[in-house]
Computed example of a mutant assay.
Amino acid sequence: MKYKNAVLDDKELQEGLKGINPKFGDFVTRIAGEAWGRPLIDQKTKALITIAVDVVNQDHTGSGNPFAAHVNMALKQGATRAEIEEILLFMCVYAGFNKAAGCFGTLNEILGSQS
Rank of each mutant, 00 (worst) to 15 (best):
Y94C: 07
G112C: 12
A79Q: 05
K23W: 02
A95L: 05
D42R: 10
I31Y: 13
Q58G: 05
G78A: 01
F27R: 09
G112N: 05
E86V: 06
L111V: 05
L8H: 12
I41G: 10
G19F: 07
N72C: 01
H60L: 09
Q58P: 01
K76P: 00
E12G: 02
D9W: 11
G16T: 02
I51K: 02
I84W: 12
G105F: 09
F104Y: 06
E34N: 15
I31T: 14
A47C: 09
L107C: 12
E34H: 15
G62N: 02
C92K: 15
V71M: 00
E12A: 10
N65A: 04
V55T: 09
T50G: 06
W36I: 07
E86S: 14
G37Y: 15
V56F: 13
H60I: 14
A52D: 03
I20D: 09
K18W: 01
K99H: 07
V28N: 11
D26P: 11
L8N: 11
I84S: 09
T106M: 03
G62E: 00
C92F: 04
M73L: 10
K44V: 14
K11A: 14
D59L: 02
T50H: 11
C92V: 02
E12Q: 13
E12Y: 12
C92S: 09
T80R: 09
I31C: 09
G96L: 00
V56A: 15
A79E: 03
V56N: 10
C103A: 04
T61K: 10
V53T: 12
K18S: 03
E15M: 05
D59Q: 11
L8M: 12
G64K: 04
E86K: 15
C103K: 00
L40A: 11
F104I: 08
M91E: 02
N108Q: 15
